[in-house]
Design a protein around this nucleic acid. Structure first.
Lengths: 251, 251
DNA sequence: TTGCAAATTCCCACCCGCTGAGAAGATCAG
DNA sequence: CTGATCTTCTCAGCGGGTGGGAATTTGCAA
């Protein structure tokens, strides 16, 4: 359980640990305890905290208490979850799209709709989606993946709410079938949209997890083609999964 | 211009500098440039970034580009500006209130109203305010300080908008007089509310600046007493200013 | 006001581990 | 494929971080 070598410089390492602990506990614990928990000698902990304070990332909040600093709030105004996800994903998604010569998307669930955060065209016929646009969740591959990993209560509420409009003859509109589909998706770890949104559009989506293994987004690969591409599915799925794995490894 | 001694461990120091730079530039610049700017050898910069990535505070956003990490967003969901301000200020405000045996407040401007973030009673008759409550800005000491330091355009709009209701005979309700008052407050660096909100309530407020010298809040000391306390003003003002100075020194 | 307990700073010699130039390796764009 | 650039690795030397404990300061309560 000891820190392995690839941990970086010790002072930075421990300083960041302390930083995280302070943000996590939100000035509700005394420094001494946090230091003990992290195996940092008190004397050293104070030295580290002093450095953090100096940069305004941390601020004293009473005797022994430290909390997030004002400067940090300043820095974080321009940081939002979506931007982070998009930034970390873009290069990988681009590579995926190019390698497979198709279109790849990154999407999240917002207000029960799928919002597309990224779109990378790597070849093939153009797809109609646009970055920032929203699509119904129940019929798109990304949407189904995200719905499938929702907490059961939320997912059931969505399925029970409807109505589900048929965009093509293949769109799943029956709540019972949709529920079954989502269960299968959760089980399989990926979702397929086989011309359920638009004729000739076939997508495969895989969930993207954060460090705590929560599903925060999904990535899809879309091809426009007259049926029969079934054989290529396995390969595409592997490629997408590989891509997701790389992204997750970087957060 | 070299780092003085009280800067803390070098690796932490430089790591945090890099961290700040990465958050500030939002993945729009290559690491190499940021490193050069901070006088950090490239080789070392990569080592530091690796450590930051390991904790999820930073994430790779493409060849040479780094941006904020997901874990950071997670940590920062529970951080907001008001909480930070309040946390950093509370102990100082309490001490001020006790020392002066009166009531002290921390307030910010929100929607052209003053919102009280903290209230510390150190003695004397109770004051009617409550934490979280909002008060008109034009008549309270904190409000006048905050208005006085608004960008000219915003301040003029406020003054021109009105109407200003008289809460006591001493409330300033004439736009021209209010404008003059605010100018004087900006000049003097403090504001006085002499029974303009409630009879017998006399407050002195001083602005609180962040590191970039922007006014982000104000602190006031309130006394309830029949006039004549004029002589004590200087002492109270000094104490409040001293308190503000201590707070600002910690951010 | 005084006193106490806890927080915070200070000290310093030892020695660990960080440094950083450069080379080697990985990756990407065209 | 190839060049350009990012990224990782290596390594020996020495600068500076470490941390136990003492000294000092601080805040609170009686």
């Amino acid at each position: 359980m000891t820190q392995r070598d690839p941990a970086g410089p010790a002072p930075l390492q421990r300083g960041l640990q302390l930083f995280s602990a302070i943000l996590r506990d939100g000035a509700s614990r005394v420094l001494r305890e946090q230091a003990r928990e992290l195996d940092i000698p008190l004397s050293t902990a104070y030295r580290l905290v002093a450095a953090l304070c100096r940069d305004g990332l941390v601020a004293r909040a009473g005797r022994g208490f430290y909390g997030p600093g004002l400067e940090l709030a300043e820095l974080l105004r321009r940081v939002d979850r979506r931007a982070i996800l998009a930034a970390a994903t873009r290069p990988h998604l681009r590579r995926l799209a190019r390698r497979l010569r198709l279109t790849a998307h990154l999407g999240v669930l917002e207000d029960e709709m799928v919002t597309y955060l990224l779109k990378e065209q790597g070849g093939g016929p153009p797809v109609f989606t646009q970055v920032g646009c929203q699509l119904e969740a129940y019929c798109s591959a990304i949407g189904k993946v995200l719905l499938a990993h929702l907490p059961a209560a939320e997912r059931d509420r969505y399925v029970g709410a409807g109505p589900f409009v048929a965009l093509t003859p293949r769109t799943i509109t029956d709540p019972t079938l949709l529920h079954r589909e989502l269960t299968a998706v959760a089980e399989a770890g990926y979702a397929v949209d086989d011309e359920e949104v638009t004729e000739q559009l076939r997508c495969i989506a895989v969930p993207l997890h954060d460090r705590r293994h929560r599903v925060v987004a999904a990535i899809s690969a879309s091809r426009i083609e007259a049926g029969g591409g079934r054989t290529a599915d396995a390969m595409v799925l592997d490629a997408v999964r590989d891509c997701v794995e790389r992204i997750e490894r970087q957060l």
